[in-house]
C-alpha cells in the first residue's frame, strides 16, 4: 500500500491528471454535469433550494482532496439531514418557485442547514485528533507494560 501511492502520483504527474481524480473519470464528470444541467432545467426550484441549503457540501466537494472525500461525506450527510424536510415539503407543494423562495427566505432554515454542515465538518476535524491521541496513549501504555516485563525478566534471568 505504501509503495502504491507514490507510484500513482507519478502516473498522475505524467498524464496531467488532478490528485484525487481517477483515470476514465472524465466521462463520469461530463455525465454528472449533464445530470446537473437537466436538474437545473427541469427542477429549477428544487435545485435552487438544494443548492443553497447544501452549498457547504458543494464547497467541501471542491475543497476536499482526501481519498474518499471524508469531509464532503460528513458535511453532505449532516446538511442533507436538515435539507431533507424542506425539499420534501417543496416536492409536496408541486415544486413551485414561490415555495422555494419562501423556504430560502427563512433564515432559520438556512442557518440550521449550514450549522449542521459545519457540525459535520467539525466532527471530521476533531474526531481524528481525538482518536489519534487516544491510540497513542493506549499504545504507550502497552509499550510501558512490555518494557517493565522485559526489565523484570532481565533482572531475574539476566547474566
Amino acid at each position: 500500500m505504501a509503495s502504491k501511492a507514490p507510484a500513482q502520483q507519478q502516473v498522475r504527474a505524467k498524464v496531467g491528471a488532478k490528485p484525487g481524480g481517477k483515470s476514465g473519470m472524465g466521462s463520469m464528470i461530463w455525465l454528472q454535469g449533464m445530470v446537473c444541467g437537466a436538474v437545473l432545467t427541469f427542477a429549477t426550484p428544487a435545485a435552487l433550494v438544494g443548492g443553497t441549503l447544501l452549498a457547504p457540501a458543494l464547497l467541501a466537494l471542491v475543497a476536499d482532496r482526501e481519498p474518499g472525500r471524508p469531509v464532503f461525506r460528513a458535511v453532505a450527510l449532516f446538511g442533507g439531514a436538515v435539507a431533507l424536510e424542506p425539499l420534501w415539503h417543496l416536492c409536496l407543494s408541486g415544486d413551485s418557485m414561490t415555495t422555494a423562495l419562501e423556504i430560502l427566505s427563512d433564515p432559520t432554515m438556512l442557518a440550521f442547514a449550514w450549522i449542521a454542515a459545519a457540525f459535520g465538518w467539525a466532527l471530521c476535524e476533531v474526531l481524528p485528533v481525538l482518536m489519534e491521541n487516544a491510540g497513542k496513549f493506549a499504545e504507550a501504555a502497552r509499550v510501558a507494560g512490555w518494557k517493565a516485563e522485559l526489565k523484570r525478566i532481565e533482572e531475574e534471568w539476566g547474566e
Binding site: G68, P70, R73, L84, C124, L127
Partner: peptide, 21 residues
C-alpha cells in the same frame, strides 16, 4: 487507521442523522 476510523465515525453519525430526518 485512527484518522480513517474517525472519518468513518463522522460519516456514520451523518448517516444516522439523515436516517433520523
Amino acid at each position: 487507521d485512527a484518522r480513517r476510523l474517525a472519518h468513518d465515525i463522522a460519516a456514520g453519525a451523518g448517516l444516522l442523522a439523515l436516517m433520523g430526518a
